[in-house]
Amino acid sequence: MLRDITIGQYYPAKSVIHQLDPRVKLMATLIYIISLFSFQGIVGFLLVTAFLILIIRLSKVPFSYMVKGLRAIVILMLITALFNLFLTPGEDVLLQIWKLTITMEGVKNAVFMMVRLVYLIVGTSVMTLTTTPNQLTDGLEKSLMPLRKIHVPVHAIAMMMSIALRFIPILIEETDIIMKAQMARGADFENGNLIKRAKSMVPLLVPLFISAFRRADDLAMAMEARCYVGGEGRTRMKPLSYDKRDYTAYLVLVMFLVLVILARIIL
């Protein structure tokens, strides 16, 4: 169950997408998300779908691997769909039960919302699956550099992100073990009402927090021992520099954005 979360996991492969500069991928993700929430109608939908399929094919990451990440948000998706289904006002009423009405617009909205959420998760997981967290944070750090002028601790934020990403799989595994260990002592995480279930999380969360703090403490010491003193004076093993394919990718992105906007205005 917990192993299904794919966000933050890197899938090693040699593909064009893997080799792109992380700044390009960050920008692409941004543009993709904007277009995802601004497209309207079937043409826009097809455009975004085509873009997503193209990226997935180029990335050489097995499709099943990305879909796995969806399981974690099934409930969120259902709730969103239900809200859209019942709460969208419209004239074309399809069904009316008591005070709840389902309209044609509602169905449309629900479907589009589901599609958007699925595309959002799949699309962003392409980025995390093809970019090592270090590259990602490097990219973020470099892209956000201008913010340093207004005293935003860009390097610290980037470092925090990269460490968080490194420890996600470890903590997930640890959660699994603690859960099993407490179940071996008769703990029940599945039954009971909401309050009982919330209470049953204590034996899981306390050890998990303690372990996370211990790890953080160890890690801080290990980093210090390796001469880490913050971002000043650091060099890079893999400095970011744009390649020809990165410029090509930017061009493709611009074209994609223009098409989505055109589709929205014209159709």
Binding site: Y10, T132, P133, N134, S162, I163, L165, R166, R214, R215, D218, L219, A222, M223, R226, C227, Y228, V229, G233, R234, T235, R236, M237, K238
Partner: peptide, 20 residues
């Protein structure tokens, strides 16, 4: 608790990076 990076070689490079 002492491996910082998510790729082996990037972790080995962490110390030298800090040293400039």
């Amino acid at each position: 608790n002492q491996i910082i990076a998510t790729v082996v070689e990037e972790d080995v490079g962490f110390g030298p990076e800090n040293m400039g």
